[in-house]
Design a protein around this nucleic acid. Structure first.
Lengths: 338, 338
DNA sequence: TTGAAAGCGCTAACAC
DNA sequence: GTGTTAGCGCTTTCAA
């Protein structure tokens, strides 16, 4: 049975309220009273019951994090970032995995909302209306998703695509394929738009294939369509797709990057382990999680400090060059299997 | 401001206790009273405040999960399993990532223990004493770790190694290398012992190298030592090491499985994406998480139903054959680079 | 600087 | 079947 504040008070020979003060506003209590309390706390291994405290202060000291799939390395990194930042402020985090099912999502979020001070949401699937509604009820920070009136942390997809294209163009590529991710995905839309703009600006031919699932299997499925184009390089919606692509290309005897350059987006752990190691645009996932928590803490402690409409923050990606991108083959040099 | 039980009571024209009963023990209240309450609940979007309930029942309806690193795919799967099972019982889960630092671990666990009904611990690093002490204070289920007197879910490492060896022996291998994981790791010890026993039983020469970190880098580092042995096949502590091995072997021009067969343990997501796809012993990580929660619920609801000493449950692995294991090369057929 | 008292939202006796 | 009462562990007026 854990010690209560009364146990501590008894042992220290003071009243419960003094103990409470000694712990939360030390300045307001006499130095040696404080010391006596400290000793009692120590001896009893006392930790305040957060639920009880929350009941009265209205703050739980907890935040919730909702992700579609913790086993997806992209989200795993976000979780890590959230964790790290939350721990610094002694905040505990509820994690909910929606299993990619939007139906589950709504219910889970409601349930969580009751016991946290705020929510970090990675919800590529939920509707903007649903998200806005939740943001009415509790503090919410969205990751990688823009919804009017809701605070969000996003990646600068347009810039990422600009960097991707700059790299490939510098290598001599002029015909570049784009393997699109899920049609409904917010970031897929932004990446597609960004890539088109960059392609026009640099006068390269963009060949779009897809949409494909943002998974290894999606990449495997996309490979043959990519090969069938005239492209000498391909940019994929994410690294998982790129890795699937690599696998199928290998099976078909197409050499990367000699025959075809492959460039992913995300820089998940796995990417540097691929053969060949995958060039990619690194999106700072952990950092996004950290900033999300930071923003959330701001929202919780000073709700009025930020203007309510579109407080968005874009994190820029970073080009990581590994071995899957190389110079464009000369037209006759291309030796793809027939 | 969320609705309280009093708001519901007022609207339904009953007392708060009736509302409480209508929700938790419906049978004890009149059918139409119940209906009126239900309507009020609906209209007010009422959800009971779990913290307040917990204060009086002593149950929070939450469990905690502590893992060394959520970004490690092995633990990510465990998290997923825990999540899935907990959701079925409407249990929320706190996840804490210790960042592989045992020092952080102890503090985090204490903090969590206060606000949960029980803890699932993946703590390869913490000392048995620490774990036993925590188990004194709250309900604990350990994953992949045996500690006297503490309930645990483990994988049958010995059997896994038996299966590994059977597979390789059947392919004609007689000299097999073992890349050991961290010396202090509980499962590394068990796997090593299991493998030695199996090797003796089948009369194969076991060549041990290591210890290495259970990471991609660990595998890269181990590769050259493996190559320097006479082994025609290698079993690694886990898949991550195997994938690192694959990478370095590829760089050195050593063909897998023609020159050397590689067999991992775990079957993380990444393994089927490796080139060549990795043969491995699948350990049911999600299932372990599920069973852990199930066991924890048992511990919480009927603490006396299980004998206190060594309630261990071993999950058996399953051999997954992909492309990284093949027949042993004939002695003259081996064409490793000099 | 400290203590007494009230109450956060809820449930569990105990009456009726 | 239902209402009344008390109290879970804590913080926060309000007095002293």
């Amino acid at each position: 049975m854990p010690a209560t504040i009364r146990d501590v008070a008894l042992l220290a020979g003071v009243s419960p309220s003094t103990v409470s003060r000694a712990l939360s506003v030390p300045d307001m209590v006499n130095v040696d009273t404080r010391a006596r309390v400290a000793i009692a706390v120590e001896r009893l291994h006392y930790h305040p019951n957060r639920a009880a405290r929350g009941l009265i202060t209205g703050r739980t000291g907890n935040v919730g994090l909702v992700v579609p799939d913790v086993a997806n390395p992209f989200f795993a990194s976000v979780v890590k970032g959230v964790q790290a930042r939350a721990r610094r402020d002694d905040i505990a985090v509820f994690v909910a995995d929606t299993d990619e099912e939007p139906a589950v999502e709504a219910g889970l979020i409601r349930a969580l909302a009751k016991q946290v001070d705020g929510l970090v949401l990675c919800s590529p699937r939920s509707s903007a209306e649903d998200l806005a509604a939740i943001a009415e009820e509790t503090n919410v920070v969205l990751i990688n998703r823009g919804v009017m009136g809701v605070t969000g942390i996003r990646f600068d997809d347009e810039d990422a695509m600009r960097q991707a294209l700059a790299h490939l163009v510098a290598l001599g590529h002029r015909q570049i394929a784009w393997v699109a991710g899920p049609d409904a995905s917010w970031s897929n839309q932004h990446r597609t738009v960004g890539l088109r703009a960059a392609a026009t600006a640099r006068d390269v031919e963009l060949i779009e294939v897809g949409n494909f699932a943002p998974t290894y299997e999606g990449g495997v499925a996309a490979a043959d369509q990519v090969v069938a184009t005239e492209a000498t390089a391909v940019v994929t919606y994410n690294d998982l797709i790129a890795i699937g692509l690599l696998s199928r290309l290998h099976a078909r005897g197409i050499s990367v990057p000699d025959d075809l350059s492959v460039l992913g987006v995300d820089d998940i752990e796995m990417s540097r382990m691929a053969i060949p190691a995958l060039s990619t645009i690194r999106l700072p996932q952990q950092r996004a999680g950290q900033i999300a928590v930071e923003t959330l803490i701001g929202l919780i402690t000073m709700p009025e400090a930020v203007p309510p409409i579109l407080r968005s923050n874009a994190l820029t990606g970073e080009l990581i060059v590994r071995n899957s991108t190389g110079p464009a083959p000369s037209p006759k040099g291309r030796k793809r299997s027939p």
